[in-house]
């Protein structure tokens, strides 16, 4: 019941959060995140994000969708239900372009959204940060950094002290 899930540090404004992120990044933490009510330009650089793997989902799904859409039409009009339409050959590829395009697009969209959810482990109905009353202001006027206890560099006292040294106005260990 009183397991420590991680540490939460609050900062006064986006600029302090930004510079604190740079220091957490440089300290070598991996399992951590920053929270702000609005997007902060360049925060992804301050946090040292690696490139997202979502584009690979988009590429594979998109190519599969386009190829599948094209193959479906070829199969229908040459094998399943061959019909001569306005004197054109059975395999009239220009006619397949719109559906091929549309299926490519919708599969890309599904792959991108699904891949993003999968990698972010969404939907998540519970998160340990919700145990912190203070964290509620993250959607209003609070700027936070959270470090998870699963991080290899985690050490309850040491991590709290580190976050305080970054100029946090308040640091708490979130239990629950």
């Amino acid at each position: 019941m009183s397991k420590v899930h991680g540490a939460l540090a609050e900062f006064a404004n986006p600029a302090e959060l930004y510079h604190a992120c740079e220091k957490v990044r440089d300290a070598g933490y991996n399992d951590w995140d920053s929270h702000s009510p609005f997007p902060i330009h360049g925060i992804e650089k301050a946090m040292g994000f690696a490139w997202s793997r979502v584009p690979w989902f988009a590429l594979v799904f998109g190519l599969t969708g386009a190829a599948g859409g094209f193959a479906l039409q070829v199969w229908i009009s040459t094998v399943a239900s061959p019909l001569v339409i306005s004197g054109k050959p059975l395999l009239s590829w220009p006619a397949y372009v719109p559906v091929t395009f549309e299926l490519g697009i919708i599969c890309t969209a599904i792959g991108t959204l699904g891949g993003m959810c999968l990698l972010n482990r969404l939907p998540a109905f519970y998160h340990w940060l919700f145990h912190s009353k203070r964290f509620e202001s993250a959607t209003d006027d609070g700027f936070f950094i959270s470090i998870e206890s699963t991080d290899s560099k985690w050490d309850s006292a040491g991590t709290s002290a580190f976050l305080e040294s970054l100029g946090a106005s308040h640091v708490e260990l979130v239990e629950g």
Binding site: S86, G87, P94, A95, V97, P98
Partner: peptide, 12 residues
């Protein structure tokens, strides 16, 4: 370009 070709080709 494709739309221009496509509509002309399809309507014939």
């Amino acid at each position: 370009s494709f739309s221009q070709f496509f509509l002309i080709w399809y309507a014939n």
